[in-house]
């Protein structure tokens, strides 16, 4: 979403508001009253609404999440040249939208999931500016990763439902679907963001 149309709307609004500020006498006429209602009530609320939508959309972008230095190693981990690295394999093969990689996997696919993600984001901003951010290697999820987020895309997919490893044990798939066995548990897709060993990693330099 481009910010140019909204910037133009803001500029037009500011100019029209300026007319009221510098020539308040125009509000004495019926036309002036209508102008005042339009520029002092409707236009600012429209700008606020569109601006909020723009910022919420922008906050889903991968570059937005990676703009804080604490997240840089997590961004690098998306480029690790190893298909066993879950996040890197998803990002590089566009199994998730590359432009919204962080949000796609780290939002909660439940009621108010997006709102919850924004509230956690505000907490991150607070810690970044006013708290003591942990080292990247020490950053952990608030809660264990819920399979619901994986199943949002993989449930019903042939590779998931008919995968040889997934069906080797008949109890595995029901347990995964019930979130009793984690997709990222040991022996499964356990390497997600291995930020501690990035120094020795080989990186993919493909098209981004």
């Amino acid at each position: 979403m481009s910010s140019t149309p909204l910037l133009l709307l803001i500029a037009v609004s500011a100019v029209l508001i300026g007319v009221i500020v510098f020539r308040p006498g125009v509000t004495a006429t019926a036309g002036g009253k209508m102008l005042a209602f339009f520029v002092l009530f409707l236009l600012p609320l429209v700008c606020l609404g569109i601006g909020t939508t723009y910022h919420i959309d922008n906050s889903k972008r991968t570059e937005f999440c990676l703009s804080c230095h604490e997240m840089e190693p997590f961004g690098k981990s998306l480029l690790v040249d190893d298909p066993a690295h879950l996040a890197a394999a998803h990002y590089q093969n566009h199994r998730i939208p590359a432009g919204e990689a962080c949000y796609t996997c780290h939002t909660t696919y439940a009621m108010f999931g997006g709102f919850r993600a924004k509230m956690q984001g505000l907490k991150h901003v607070y810690v970044h500016y006013l708290g003591t951010p942990p080292a990247p290697e020490a950053i952990r999820l608030y809660d264990p990763y819920n399979n619901r987020e994986c199943l949002h895309c993989h449930l019903g997919a042939r590779s998931f439902e008919e995968g040889a490893v997934h069906n080797a044990d008949p109890d595995l798939l029901p347990a995964v679907k019930a979130n009793k066995v984690s997709c990222v548990s040991s022996g499964c897709h356990e390497v997600v963001h291995d930020v501690a060993s990035l120094k020795n990693a080989k990186f993919w330099k493909g098209a981004l």
Binding site: S3, L6, L7, I10, A11, S13, A14, I17, P44, C47, L48, G51, Y54, H55, N58, S59, E63, F64, S67, C68, G121, L122, H124, V125, H128, Y129
Partner: peptide, 17 residues
């Protein structure tokens, strides 16, 4: 509106706040 316009050109998380 000036604050809003400035924040639109600023893509850091603090801009949202």
């Amino acid at each position: 509106l000036l604050v809003e316009a400035t924040c639109l050109l600023w893509t850091r998380p603090i801009a949202f706040v």
